[in-house]
Amino acid sequence: MSGQSLPLTAAMAAEERQARRAHRLRQLRLWRRLFTRSFSSALGLAIVTVFLVFAAFGPWIAPYPADAMGAVNMKLSLHPPNWQHWFGTDEMGNDLLTRVLVGTRTSLQIGLTITLGAAAIGTPLGLLSGYVGGGTRAAIMSLTDLFLSMPGLVLAIAIVAALGPGITNATIALAIVWWPGYVRLIDAKTLSVKEEPYIEVARSLGASRARILFRYLLPNCVSPLIVKASMDMGAAILAAAGLGFIGLGARAPTPEWGAMLSIARGYLPQWWWYAVFPGTAIYLSVLGFNLLGDGLRDMLDPRTSSG
């Protein structure tokens, strides 16, 4: 039963690759299964994909690219939806479809940056607090609680008011407001995983704290992170639109859904399309991310994912 030391032959390497491929295929099957089984997840994925495409290619697929940055065309001002302008036009005569499309990029960009930024700040803090415990945890948790006790949007407004309006500052403000949620999540996950026998095994093998944190604990946090991040995207987009609505987000003439809604308010109810289309865009994008997040959570939940 004890083997001699064999050199790595080509056959063994090939066998390795094949086994890895088989494993990956099974993973893909699981993913595919999830999205074909659950209508809402599939819908979520579809919506998000559409918006991602818009964000990526917006400026190129928009019918009136000049309108994206606010050309002035008073003759076309406030035309209802028609065959030339599917979403109608705004008060400057800009094609609303173009502006909504290009606005996708803005909103998604902000959403993604906020979420990633918050995760980048919150995750290490959460890992540290969960694993080290004691005074460190008390300190981090107090800080987190401090931030959590302040109404998020109000704090963001305060920060933006201090830094000055604009996409960058709005993003910074929201990321600052967002990170505590990640700390809580990662801290909780770390606390529970920390007790797992395989962590004790690692310690018994002489693994350093750093190794345990990065090699053992962090990979376990990836799933909940992905789920939270995708659900947060929706909220982040909404928050960014909220800031834009009160004029603290993107500056004109950059198309941004919230800002558009703010102006559109004055044109209700007669020129309804001005508010409806950006509003629907916000609604759909948030819905899409939420559904996607739900689907990912069901799939990544070790209890429901078979095997």
């Binding site: 797992e196 026998p197 395989y198 376990n220």
Partner: peptide, 10 residues
Amino acid sequence: FQNPHTSLHP
């Protein structure tokens, strides 16, 4: 360790 199902990193 005792429990083979939890002694290995998943």
